[in-house]
Design a protein around this nucleic acid. Sequence first.
DNA 1: TGAATAGTGTCTGTGAGACAATATTAT
DNA 2: ATAATATTGTCTCACAGACACTATTCA
Lengths: 281, 281
Amino acid sequence: MSQEENYKSEKEFLENYNSNAFEKLSLTSDTLIFSVSEEKQENYRKLNEKYFSILLVKRTTYPFKDKWCLPGGFVKMDETGEEAAKRILASEANLHDIYMEQLYTYSDVDRDPRMRIVSTAYIALIDKNKIQDKLNDNASWFNVVDYNEEISNDGSILVSYKLNNGNEDIFIKCKKTRINKTSENYNYEILENEKLAFDHAKVIIQGRERLQNKIEYTDIAFNLVGEYFTLGELQQVYEIVLGKKLLDPAFRRIIADKVVKTNKEKKGEGHRPSALFKYNG
Amino acid sequence: MSQEENYKSEKEFLENYNSNAFEKLSLTSDTLIFSVSEEKQENYRKLNEKYFSILLVKRTTYPFKDKWCLPGGFVKMDETGEEAAKRILASEANLHDIYMEQLYTYSDVDRDPRMRIVSTAYIALIDKNKIQDKLNDNASWFNVVDYNEEISNDGSILVSYKLNNGNEDIFIKCKKTRINKTSENYNYEILENEKLAFDHAKVIIQGRERLQNKIEYTDIAFNLVGEYFTLGELQQVYEIVLGKKLLDPAFRRIIADKVVKTNKEKKGEGHRPSALFKYNG
DNA sequence: TGAATAGTGTCTGTGAGACAATATTAT
DNA sequence: ATAATATTGTCTCACAGACACTATTCA
């Protein structure tokens, strides 16, 4: 504290500043990448079933070796947290120009066993059709195959997830408690989590909640579909993110002024073809 | 990278971990404290005029000596960002048990002239009537006396603020540009800012926006009033935060199931007395 | 009594929820 | 023809916006 007292100018102060006066820590960026994946149906008439999916990476090194985690890494001294997140996605998963926003900064003292590491988590949304190629060996898409939320007696909410990548299941169970009765902010206590490293189970739960909220009052859903899409496909995306069925006419009313009809059609599906639309950005 | 390769267990790895393998930085917590202040009117019949107000602290040391900033400081190694924010508010302004939530983490490389410092900003809401005492000499409440938002030709939004603490004006002008056409996230470019340190002008603008949004779908407004309040007072709080007048019947409908009428009354105001209500948490 | 706020009644239009009906394709 | 989805029409109900009206106090 006393070091600042006697300088005559900011310039002089800065020249003499001891940047080690305060303890330092490391900062990482972790990105929660959401997408919607399709699964071909046996019945040729039916639409492909869609799943909400998350990209996870298997750790090959300690700590949490062999556990799954969000793609992330250390923030370098010459980049912002978001720049770091983008750099890592480009190098680890060959992803470029994707929608990204900051989710939350996690600063629990013991969240990393190595040392004090604070992490800023980001949410990213991509259209999975664009990027079937070049996934790193350690990376894998997990579908949310089961999702449940129930209110317990004491007013807290029990959330459970089941993720699957075609090969392996991940279960998460979490107890959400309101931090304050006036707000929608929760404390997340992980009750069950065998396979996810760090506090990433919490990030996934909190991130999905954010996406569910934002899809209702923004247009971010369009980042999950390609340039051309049918209204049925778009509706499926909303339904998967929201976790509930929507009524066709209501949905069409809501998005009517967000899309433009093109003269293209999607044909050959065993039923009436549907018009392809574009986002009216 | 190579250090992790050869350990047989996580325990062994951690015992040998070199925590200086990556560059480190400093983390600070800054808190944007909002409140609503009253100003006695000359006309005895009229209600007190209310202002949206923000607590700022005058810096006494470099950098940004003599500029105003948000109360904040370095996060210690044994506390989370939010704990640091609370510790600082307790010590600097004698504020305890106040509503707080995380706003955003600012990590621009040059945001602090001393060195690389990342800051997590928090929003806090308090009832100003509770805390007229014991403000630090350097701290001062600024009222938002003028606030304007206009859309410019290129689609960006020009935001201007005028703050006043009874003694001094602070002007801020900022250009908001959508980062992405699908979302409500903006890039904030400060065009005018003489008196605020660091990137705190941006924090104020972003924080107020957050509050405006959240007051519509949560009950956080109740953190800005005391235990007992009249519906007129509560309505004023909403109006000030939202920056627009509300119609009485509509407002009463909206909050009807959030409040409970008590048998207390507020009398002696030169007009019909009004019932005091409590929050129905 | 008058100025000011407190509090309520009610009309209207918008928009969401619900359900029904029609349209069109591949097999 | 049939199964499946695409697309539109319309009824109803809830609710926000708007305005008018009544109630009550203190100087």
